[in-house]
Amino acid sequence: MTQMLSRASKLFVGTSGYSYGEWIDSGFYPSGTHSSNMLDFYTQIFHATELNYTWYQMPKAPAIERMCTKVPKDFKFAAKLTRTMTHEVKKGQWAKEVMLYRQGIEPLIQHQKLLCILIQLPPYFKRSITFRNYLAALLDELAGLPIAVEFRHDSWANDKVFSELERRKVTLVSVDEPDLPNLFPRLDVVTNPDLFYVRFHGRNSRGWRSGNMQKQFDYDYAQWELAQWAATIKTAMMTQAATGGIFFNNHVRGQAPKNALRLIDLLFKDYHLQKT
């Protein structure tokens, strides 16, 4: 939901993807909703979503163009960077992939629908010289685009990394995930005055490394957990960036939209309390 919660910050709250059959069973989509109508319904409730499929497949401009025409004027997309540039990088080929990616998402830029490019790095992407060099080169290639980087390894939780991201005006993604060894910690560091970005993956420690998304992202946030985040977002993040992207990835059994709506309520409640 796009809401002006303060003079400084414009918030986009949504979910990671929107096309899930099980969201019909969970009651988020009305019974009998056809997959092709899910985006229409989704845009009536949220004003932003993450494009997950662009991780699996290089985005194709005609398909993105059609998608842009289906959504309201103020709707935004955060497009994941394709796996060939994050998880399956081939030396000597990735720069060409960046070029193809840029061409693919061009309609998002033209229609002013791009919130940012989300670079989700794999857990084995540690802070080594090779990976540091690669990330620097990748950010150079993507220069000019709004970028958010999500680390999955705690070796990147380092002030030098944050200051370099700050210098480049690249957003560090704050992640909410289980407290497991080597996972990137929950932080509220804002490195880009234009955009802060939070991803809620759920805190399912048992399912996290199961290799099954249905177990990994099966988590329902408690009210107090969301309240904590609402306070953090309001006090530590919104004050430092003009725009915020908040996305729930715990899609299993429709928990993501449910939690997103609860967080919106909490953020609004605080806002209304402030006003009065």
């Binding site: 899910m38 499929y53 497949q57 398909a63 059609r66």
Partner: peptide
């Protein structure tokens, strides 16, 4: 390669 055709597309 791969191709994902979105429902309705």
């Amino acid at each position: 390669g791969e191709y994902i055709v979105a429902p309705g597309d």
